[in-house]
Amino acid sequence: MGRYVASERRDAVALVTIDNPPMNALSAALLEELEAELEELDTDDAVRAIVLRGAGDRAFVAGADIKEFPALRESASEGGSARGIQQVGRRMDAARTPFVAAIRGYCLGGGLELAMCCDVRICADDATLGQPEIKLGLIPGGGGTQRLPRLVGHGRAMFLNLTGDFVDAATAHAWGLVEKVVPAAELEDAALAVAGRIASQSPHAVAVLRELARTTRDLPLEEGLRREADGFVRCLRSEDGAEGVAAFIEKRPPEFTGR
């Protein structure tokens, strides 16, 4: 257990908690610790899904640690919080393990950028989401100008980024920013349930699917379809693919190994 990040196991699911009171702001040290923890979990074959949440009930993550910005400006460094969020996001993109965000309370700025790095976002009905960087004379620097339009479309992303306005959980769901909204008291169970269903699938097929989603997003349809067909064949030839088909024919639960 680190200073800012803790993880615990729930069967094949790892529950990772960001803990930096009062609002779980993303400092450079926290991001470094988070990246190291996710790296370790991703290399553990026993972990088949990761749930990411914020400690307490006030915030998933309320943003980057703005107190670090003056020093970042003075040094003109490229190693500040914005790049740190992008670096963590790239590591999550490249992981074999899928991520589920459990969002409660404020999910703003770098917090929303971190949530958007996850594959699935489960949201409490008390959540508030947004990219308020424009109000500081800044722009999102952890992926908010790139990941947000890919989820909600150009116009809605520009609205959020240009106004800095917040949206509630119901609006976030209607816009496609989150996949499910549940009562706040049920958030952890709901996120773990989704992660558990993902963890029960073939790790090999999950990894192939995540790779396709990442690498074909901006490709022409025909090229994407070609790569999808290649991925299907890879899965069909895998041990998990053979096991899944055999289990279906034999009317029994499959026993996937990730091979």
Rank of each mutant, 00 (worst) to 15 (best):
G2Y: 05
R3C: 10
R3P: 03
S7G: 14
R9K: 11
D11E: 15
V13L: 06
V13K: 03
I18N: 02
I18W: 03
P22W: 04
M23D: 08
N24L: 04
S27P: 07
A29V: 11
L30F: 06
E32C: 14
L34C: 04
A36V: 08
L38W: 01
L41G: 02
L41W: 02
D44W: 07
D44N: 14
D44S: 13
A49L: 10
I50W: 04
R53G: 00
G54S: 04
G54A: 04
A55G: 06
D57Y: 07
D57F: 08
R58E: 10
R58Y: 06
G63V: 01
I66A: 13
K67P: 00
E68I: 01
E68Y: 02
F69D: 06
L72C: 11
R73F: 13
S77H: 06
G79D: 12
G80D: 05
G80Y: 02
R83I: 06
I85E: 03
I85M: 07
I85A: 03
V88T: 07
G89E: 03
R91L: 11
A95Y: 05
A95G: 12
F99G: 00
G110N: 01
G111N: 01
L112D: 01
E113R: 00
L114D: 00
M116K: 02
R121G: 02
C123A: 09
D125S: 14
D125H: 07
L129E: 00
G130E: 00
Q131S: 10
P132N: 07
P132C: 09
E133Y: 05
K135M: 13
L136P: 09
G141A: 11
Q146D: 14
R147V: 08
P149E: 05
V152T: 03
H154M: 13
H154E: 15
G155H: 14
D165F: 08
D168S: 10
A169C: 02
A172K: 04
H173F: 09
K180Y: 07
V181L: 04
A185L: 09
E186R: 12
D189E: 15
D189W: 07
A191P: 06
A193Y: 08
V194P: 01
G196Y: 05
I198F: 05
S200C: 11
S202I: 09
H204Y: 15
A205L: 15
A207N: 08
V208K: 03
V208P: 02
P220G: 10
E222S: 15
E222H: 13
E223C: 04
G224Y: 03
L225P: 04
E228N: 12
D230E: 15
F232A: 13
C235S: 07
D240K: 05
A242W: 09
A242K: 11
E243Y: 08
A247L: 10
F248C: 13
P253C: 07
P253W: 05
E255K: 13
G258S: 08
R259A: 14
